[in-house]
Design a protein around this nucleic acid. Structure first.
Lengths: 237, 237
DNA sequence: TGGGGTTTGGTGACAAGATCACCGTGGACC
DNA sequence: GGTCCACGGTGATCTTGTCACCAAACCCCA
């Protein structure tokens, strides 16, 4: 059922990772003692691609800070439908889900490693102590919240007001690798944008007709990145 | 422009309000000294209906806890479009906006008093001190976050997957007063649900044909509350 | 009391998007 | 080679969004 069991076990041998703290802007200015405390009170873990980092029904006993890789956070509803909510990148944290877990059981967001992930895991005790003790850490946490929340606000705004072709164009640019290739099925893109596969199919074949992309099975190749970006930006109404 | 200037001035004469703290479940178990500190470090303010409690560009120097009345929080976009995000009721707080203000300037949510409002205002200094000192207060704050965030999650889910008639039915039941009357124009209902006035008009006249509601200017009267509730609940797909 | 403007709501036409049903194709695996 | 399945294409139909325009109700003020 859950893939949580697949997680690699605690990996303390990664000595080079004791100073992962500096990878987080907001934590750089932590005073020395607090920093030690944070490093000691947490541990670095490795998750394979596809691992479920958190899911409904799980206890919220820790905060994850991503050192590398990306995590997709999505809302799964009763009937198996899914909406993509946001993506957590290296240098960011999973505060929202932690908060939700903390308070209720009836939330329904899942966090999935899209790539192999390295993350610092701060147990609840350490988290609580640091929030109490350190102004810097507090600010870090609240800023993380704020960032996610504004993301959600703009997501809602987009869903309600933005045209789908505009949103798709933007997402393609975002997801493209260095070669301008997006490795995703129509289904996945549909879930990301909260729409149906068919709609993505039609939009993409339209893009293709206009020479913006070329399609392949399980991948989309951006031909005219500039035009897509223009479409994505110019989509204001 | 802003109505913030309309706010009543500081109202310390309301002696009966020094123990407003007990109106908040999460704060009841505050130890005596912390409680005193919270009461002293904050003040109770009164806002007239229509007052803007917070808006883009304002500094996040305080947290509001609602003692009575309701506040509508909405996202206003570039082109004057608005989406209703959530409603803050008595016994709840405006944590999200505070967080957003705390971290960025480029958010765009506005809080408007829908009724006359009485609120405890906790200045940033007090807030920070209490978060540091009191485990109970900390938990209160994080739970407030969690509550709002899950609300946003379900809002997104609804917007993406739920049919409008179902959402409208639910909202009508929610907004109806004791007599089963909703005092709102089609425009307002449209904004609440993130849709256009015309759509609301059509849905309502459909509801009327089906004998579920009766319409009047600026108001909707629920005729068959049960049926509406059934529609709202049964809307799962 | 009677304009005149504003707010509210109604409606038709059309575009965008969602949903359903069904099919073809290309890969993976045996 | 055959079978199964994930992936994608397409038409029909329904829901929702957008635009344009109108009519009635209400408000304000002369």
């Amino acid at each position: 059922m859950s893939q949580t069991a697949n997680l690699d076990t605690d990996d303390r041998t990664e000595a080079s990772l004791t100073n992962w703290i500096d990878r987080f802007d907001g934590l750089k200015s932590l005073p020395e003692d607090t920093r030690t405390r944070l490093a000691r009170g947490s541990r670095v873990r490795r998750f394979p691609e596809g691992a479920v980092l958190f899911e409904p029904g799980q206890e919220a006993d820790r905060l994850l800070l991503l050192l590398s890789g990306t995590v997709r956070v999505q809302q799964s509803s009763d009937q198996g439908r899914e909406v993509f909510l946001y993506r957590v990148n290296a240098g960011e944290s999973c505060v929202l889900t932690t908060a939700c877990m903390l308070a209720f059981e009836d939330y329904a967001t899942t966090g999935i490693a899209e790539t192999p992930v390295l993350a610092a895991e701060i147990p609840r005790g350490t988290f609580d102590a640091l929030v109490a003790e350190s102004r810097v850490f507090r600010e870090f946490v609240f800023r993380a919240y704020a960032r996610r929340i504004t993301d959600l606000f703009t997501l809602i705004d987009d869903i309600v007001f933005q045209r789908l072709d505009v949103r798709l164009a933007g997402r393609l640019v975002e997801l493209a690798d260095a070669d301008g290739v997006v490795h995703a099925t129509h289904q996945v893109l549909g879930t990301e944008l909260g729409t149906a596969r068919e709609v993505i199919s039609r939009l993409l074949s339209d893009f293709q007709k206009r020479g913006l992309v070329k399609q392949a099975r399980g991948a989309v190749c951006l031909l005219d990145r500039e035009a897509l970006e223009r479409l994505a930006r110019g989509g204001e109404r």
